[in-house]
């Protein structure tokens, strides 16, 4: 049985991908475990830029779009009336206009048309990318087509698709976008353990509380990583009191030279020769040994 871990963080830029990638890398390099990383930050997937490997497969994510048959259409306007997102318009010149950017693919128009003038068409809203295994890591990542509004659908389908590989790996690490919405909730539901990443700022704390509410709603085991621990003038007291009162286990990733360097250079910390002596690695190793292995 593989262990499913979701790395989440209410706020953006707290270091979710940093934590996910480094945990994956440590599991592979130091613990010789195989890891599948599923990146559902479909607006801007970045895991593959940090763990570089070749693409093995690229699958389009398609949803319904109406195809209007002009010879059958009598301009009755039923499709316009029923479309719940106003993606269809009847213009005075006598034409039905389809606004692709608004369409959510529910196919209401298909069923609403009394003259069978609308048929099934399709539209690509995103892509699922699968990389070749490199060392012991495979990456599955979703990618939203710019301009498409259906990131939720792309996230869900990427997660669903990735399940075919789950059993082949010791660990599945799901990297999520910032936020606390539905697709993140789905990832949390599928997981054995949630790593909530935050930073010691007022905003980081505010968003951690919201994320914690979501994790608690689904009753999953949660551990907290406070990244950038040690930034001068950070807000420490509130977060520390909060995790204590909620009885959450906390790991602190110090804000030091190695952490900053590896973040800005986009390389996992293990790739630096001197990484063993830094607390960043020690802390993540501790997290892995105490909760994941």
């Amino acid at each position: 049985m593989s262990k499913i871990v979701t790395v989440a963080g209410g706020k953006g830029g707290v270091g979710k991908t940093f934590v996910a990638v480094n945990i994956a890398n440590i599991l592979v390099k130091l613990k010789k475990r195989s890891v599948l990383v599923v990146d559902i930050d479909v607006s801007n997937p970045c895991v593959f830029t940090l763990i570089k490997s070749d693409i093995e497969k690229r699958i389009p994510i398609k949803v319904f779009r109406p195809k209007i048959l002009k010879d059958k259409c009598v301009l009755c306007g039923e499709c316009v009336k029923y479309c719940p997102v106003h993606a269809l318009l009847l213009i005075p010149a006598g034409e039905i206009i389809f606004i692709e950017a608004l369409c959510e693919g529910c196919a209401m128009c298909l069923y609403a048309c009394p003259y069978n003038a609308i048929v099934e068409g399709e539209r690509i809203i995103g892509w699922i990318n699968v990389t070749r295994d490199k060392d012991l890591i495979k990456i599955v990542y979703g990618e939203l087509v710019p301009g498409s509004r259906q990131e939720g659908e792309v996230m869900e389908r990427t997660l669903e698709f990735s399940k075919r590989y789950w059993d082949d790996y010791d660990f599945v690490i799901i990297d999520t976008p910032p936020g606390t919405g539905k697709a993140i909730m789905h990832a949390i539901k599928e997981s054995d353990i949630i790593v909530s990443v935050t930073e010691p700022t007022r905003l980081g704390f505010h968003d951690l509380k919201k994320l914690h509410r979501l994790v608690r709603m689904i009753s999953k085991q949660e551990i907290v990583v406070i990244n950038k621990y040690g930034i001068p003038y950070g807000d420490y007291r509130e977060i520390e009191e909060f995790v204590k009162s909620e009885e959450l286990k906390v790991y602190k990733i110090p804000y030091n030279k190695l952490a900053i360097k590896s973040y800005f250079e986009g390389k996992p910390i293990l790739e630096y020769d001197n990484s063993v002596k830094f607390k960043v690695l020690k802390e993540l190793k501790k997290l892995i040994e105490e909760f994941l292995l």
């Binding site: 607006s43 509004r149 990131e151 939720g152």
Partner: peptide, 9 residues
């Protein structure tokens, strides 16, 4: 919001 999805559009 961060990203390029629905809330941003």
């Amino acid at each position: 919001a961060p990203g390029i999805g629905c809330p941003v559009i």
